[in-house]
Simulated scan of single mutants.
Amino acid sequence: MMSIYEVALQIRFWSPIILFSIGVPAALLNAIIFVSIKTFRRSSSTYYIVGQSLSDVNVLLILLLQVIPSTSSSVSSIACKLILFFLQLTVSVAMSFLCLSAFDRWACTSQSARIRQLSSIRVAQRVFPIPFILWSLVNIPFLVYCDLVPPIFSCWFTNDLFMRIGILVLSQILTVLLPLIILILFGLLTYRNIRLVIHVRQQPNQSRQSNWEQQMTRMMLIQTLLSIFCTIPRAVFVVYTIFTIDESVTRNFDQLSIIFLVDSLTISIISLNFASSFYIFLLSSPRLRQMIQMHLKCLFNRRNNQVGSTNILLTIPTLSARRTTRVTVRPTVENKPF
């Protein structure tokens, strides 16, 4: 029978592999679909979804690299610095785009016209690069104060002050607790707006776009709700860790094993945020499934038509009383745009 510590190690090893296998293809499909289909590009949430999908791929890739001995953070000093930096960067960016999506849906469903202006493609285009730039600057100290620490040469902090800042503030409060508060706040505000039966983007002659915005609101609200449930266990563990940080020295091996197990479980649960977006959207929106099917059929028919109409010349003989002439007919295939 495996001990608690061995169970925690198994979770730490298999969880990144499973999440990478199911999450990376889904995140890439998410980005491709929302970029390639014109109807999706009309929504400001598309920018936040694409940004989150790209960040999800990077997070899952880095988590996978950590469990592979040849690419783990303990291989070299450079690997230690880069993996910790990019892990902290990509997790922060992914959670930021989750929060931006929740904010966008609140603004989109607001009764105030001024607030609804914050939910626009123009605003989304300007906000899109901010999380990448902001968190790249904030996490630069990870490149300076992280290295292989003797005697076992594990990847850890080389500065005690930044160790507390990195563990408590950057890795816990800004990445877990603050996003959870924002998700809960804007999730409740969006739900209240929906209960007030506010029409999304009240514009004449834009009924189809308004219906799609309502679908986007539903999808993002469900994603926000599931993200809250996935983040709460980690947030509770973070709060417990903060209040008991001074007791870590006096704990025995069994207590440390239990804490290590809970730590591994909560990391696996919160990592579902980075692997589940596509499945949430697909299950929560029948119209999304219908549009994806239509798009795939359009692409399939277009390819078939292009293959069937390539350099085909039909020569039809036409008989008359005096002579025989040949009429060359070029068949054309009309491709209707999606």
Rank of each mutant, 00 (worst) to 15 (best):
P69N: 08
A26T: 00
I121V: 10
V75M: 14
S77M: 08
C80K: 12
P129M: 10
R42W: 01
V24K: 04
F128G: 11
S21C: 14
I17S: 03
S43F: 04
T39K: 11
V57T: 13
L118E: 02
I37T: 00
L19C: 13
S76F: 10
P131M: 09
L98W: 00
L98P: 00
L64I: 12
R116A: 12
S119T: 04
I130H: 08
W135P: 06
G51Y: 11
S73L: 15
L100M: 13
F20S: 14
V67N: 03
F20D: 06
S119C: 10
R126L: 06
P141R: 13
S45L: 04
L54G: 11
S110D: 15
S53P: 13
C146K: 13
S110W: 12
R41V: 00
V149M: 06
V127A: 10
R122L: 12
P131V: 03
L84I: 14
W106R: 05
S120A: 13
D56R: 00
L100H: 06
L100P: 08
S76P: 08
V24Y: 06
S119M: 03
G51I: 11
F85N: 03
Q117S: 15
P131I: 01
Q88L: 10
F142R: 11
I32H: 07
A94Y: 01
V127M: 04
F153C: 03
P25C: 07
I115E: 05
V93K: 07
N159K: 07
V138L: 15
G23Q: 05
P131D: 02
P69W: 09
V123W: 11
V59S: 09
V35D: 09
S120F: 07
S74T: 12
S154G: 09
S77T: 14
N58T: 04
L89I: 08
R114G: 00
S55A: 12
Q66I: 00
V144G: 11
Q52T: 02
S110H: 13
Q52A: 13
W156I: 02
I152E: 15
L100S: 03
L84G: 15
A26G: 15
L118T: 02
S55D: 02
I78C: 01
L143M: 08
S92A: 15
I140L: 13
Y145W: 12
V35Q: 08
L100V: 05
Q52I: 01
L61Q: 04
V123T: 07
V67F: 08
I130N: 05
S44R: 09
W156T: 10
A107W: 07
S119H: 08
L82I: 15
L82P: 07
F142L: 15
F153H: 11
Q52R: 09
S70P: 01
S110M: 05
A26Q: 02
N58R: 04
A94I: 00
L89S: 02
L84A: 09
V59M: 03
I49F: 01
L87Y: 10
L60Y: 04
S55F: 02
S70V: 05
N58Y: 04
L134I: 00
S53D: 06
